[in-house]
């Protein structure tokens, strides 16, 4: 494994499982503690380099690094030299000069973390790049599925929505394939990429047909603005055909769970009663994200001691 975490395709099943197991160990170690902090990364510097607005991911990484006792710098596009037109490379060299041990990067352009990784010596963690990938989201999703349903091998996961523009979908497809789950993608044909036939997934256009066979249904955020680009006629039509409401949720097997990476459009891709139901793992995903990101930072930054 490289010292970076750029893509969910970067690791095999053993390495992926190590991330999940480490997250579980961290969660267990901190459970019931009054001071939820480990000394592991004391003296190390983690930079959160966010070129795109993100609340939950940035906070999750910040808290993860702080709980590992790292020094954390938040560097966001707004209010920094970035808005004055500094190039990614110059920003990278600046962070390098400051001695960043890890750079957690969120960027609106696909592949930006891959470029960054050329210019810094520290670890680069992809916290979401354009419409490409979001590997730590896939790890926390897999962690959530495993902790709720006890396994990943053979698990039937249905991912619904804007696959074309979704970095969450890309990373989940790759990681779940590595971990032996069976993935079905459901979307209007306009929101599936050309070339999807080579992905290790089933593709369906009909949500009702897919739900009875799903152990997990993951709803993707669909931006209303896509309507203006004619990906679908109206939010209402989208919601009728691809939204998960209580009636549709009732078609799921008894133990099935409902996931969403957030932020949700309640009433669009997911009805409030579904989001707030006992099947929903949405809040759990956020909580698990913290343990998973601690595991990622720990395993990448402690490099030498842990064989990854």
């Amino acid at each position: 494994m490289s010292r970076h975490l750029l893509s969910a395709a970067d690791f095999d099943r053993e390495q992926a499982t190590l991330f999940l197991d480490t997250a579980a160990q961290i969660e267990a170690a901190l459970a019931g503690r009054e001071v939820k902090k480990l000394p592991t990364l004391r003296g190390r510097t983690v930079v959160n380099l966010f070129y795109e607005d993100s609340t939950r991911t940035r906070i999750s990484f910040e808290l993860a690094a702080k709980r590992l006792s790292a020094d954390v710098i938040n560097f966001s596009a707004k209010g920094s030299s970035v808005s004055k037109g500094e190039s990614l490379k110059d920003t990278a060299l600046t962070l390098e000069a400051m001695g960043a041990d890890a750079v957690v990067v969120r960027h609106s352009m696909s592949g930006a973390p891959h470029r960054l990784a050329l210019w810094v010596r520290g670890c680069v963690v992809n916290a979401g790049d354009g419409t490409h990938e979001h590997p730590t989201q896939a790890l926390l999703d897999a962690y959530t599925m495993r902790s709720r349903l006890g396994r990943l091998e053979g698990l039937r996961v249905t991912i619904v929505g804007d696959v074309l523009h979704s970095r969450v979908a890309r990373s989940n497809v790759l990681l779940l394939a590595t971990l032996g789950a069976e993935v079905t993608l459901v979307a209007p044909p306009t929101l599936l990429p050309v070339g999807i036939e080579t992905w290790p997934v089933e593709v369906a256009f009909d949500l009702d047909g897919a739900l009875p066979k799903a152990d997990v249904v993951m709803m993707l955020r669909v931006q209303r603005e896509r309507m203006a680009e004619s990906y679908f006629p109206s939010p209402r039509e989208y919601s009728r055909r691809y939204g998960l409401d209580a009636t549709r949720m009732a078609m799921l097997p008894d133990d099935a769970i409902v996931m969403h990476p957030g932020p949700m459009n309640r009433g669009m891709e997911i009805a409030a009663e579904v989001a707030d139901s006992v099947r929903s793992t949405i809040v759990e995903q956020v909580r698990n994200g913290l343990s998973v990101r601690m595991a990622v930072l720990y395993l990448l930054l402690s490099g030498a001691e842990v064989s990854l």
């Binding site: 696909s110 592949g111 419409t131 990938e133 070339g195 080579t198």
Partner: peptide, 18 residues
């Protein structure tokens, strides 16, 4: 559009040029 639209653009998350 950023690259040829096809298998690679789907994987890389780059907008396709059909």
């Amino acid at each position: 559009a950023q690259m040829n639209e096809g298998v690679r653009s789907a994987q890389l998350g780059l907008t396709g040029w059909p």
